[in-house]
Write a protein that binds this DNA or RNA. Sequence first.
DNA 1: AATGATATTGATAACCATTTCCATTTATAT
DNA 2: ATATAAATGGAAATGGTTATCAATATCATT
Lengths: 149, 149
Amino acid sequence: MPGGPPWWHGKLRGWGYRMTIPRQVILDLLNRSSKHLSAEDIYLAVHRTYPGIGLTTVYRTLDLLEQMRLINKFDFGDGRSRYELSQGPQWRHHHHLVCTKCGRIIDYTDFVTEEVKLLDKIEEALTKKYNFKINTHQLHFYGLCEKCR
Amino acid sequence: MPGGPPWWHGKLRGWGYRMTIPRQVILDLLNRSSKHLSAEDIYLAVHRTYPGIGLTTVYRTLDLLEQMRLINKFDFGDGRSRYELSQGPQWRHHHHLVCTKCGRIIDYTDFVTEEVKLLDKIEEALTKKYNFKINTHQLHFYGLCEKCR
DNA sequence: AATGATATTGATAACCATTTCCATTTATAT
DNA sequence: ATATAAATGGAAATGGTTATCAATATCATT
Ligand SMILES: [Mn+2]
Ligand SMILES: [Mn+2]
Ligand SMILES: [Zn+2]
Ligand SMILES: [Zn+2]
């Protein structure tokens, strides 16, 4: 691993948190994954190399990273929360297609420019009208994927 | 209650289901409410007049109505599912503002025309590109409401 | 490099929304 | 009215997530 500490190293310190092995390992996994991982997914993946890391710590770390807004937390309706890195080198703003039959999730970036333009406009108007400070948004399309339709 | 059976009466029969008292009562409550009710909310409200209706039946009925697409099921992130009628006399297409502090949910209809126009266009393109049959969508803005910001 | 304050961890148990089970009741076609 | 399958409700089970707490690891200070 060349090139000094990863990009998120300073973020944790900046928020006054310590840089621990579980946090590094979990962040590294999320950084290398392009999937939408559940807490258990992460626990199992991490467990192969670091059997000492407990599920509780996974949950705690995910909560922490979500509060720092380093990751996004989703509920796609399958009974468990799922997480993805919200920023980083290869990150792009995107939304989701969710198959209600098999649970497959497709990231799409088509039209995001147009979407984000409209959403920004809406955000601004809603902020004024309802005096509501908007931090994030989620747009999900639900339906049947190629295999399931 | 003048005017014959309510508008949803035929729907259940049309799907081959029986019209039972719990189903009538739950649908009537959802029809009269403008809130986003949890299963427990519904159970408690219904329980005052019909103490015999059990929580299990509430869950079962909500599942049924969701499958029939008479209601929408949401997860706003507070650990329980919430439901609203998806059609009916006073229904209008709308999206949601969710306060991450107090859980307040605001329905808004501003810009829905523009939104829906763009979303329809996106839906069409995504359907083609990913061979994905889209049934519904959800757009949530998360932030802090007037009181909490 | 050793120290000490305290942030963090991991195992276990608790929590709680939702499901499963199954005997009983109810709706409806005949 | 009767028969039959659908629907119900209470109790117990399930499963993802959170609370508890003693043990451990981090890191500013020495
Ligand atoms: Mn994604
Ligand atoms: Mn609504
Ligand atoms: Zn599918
Ligand atoms: Zn609020």
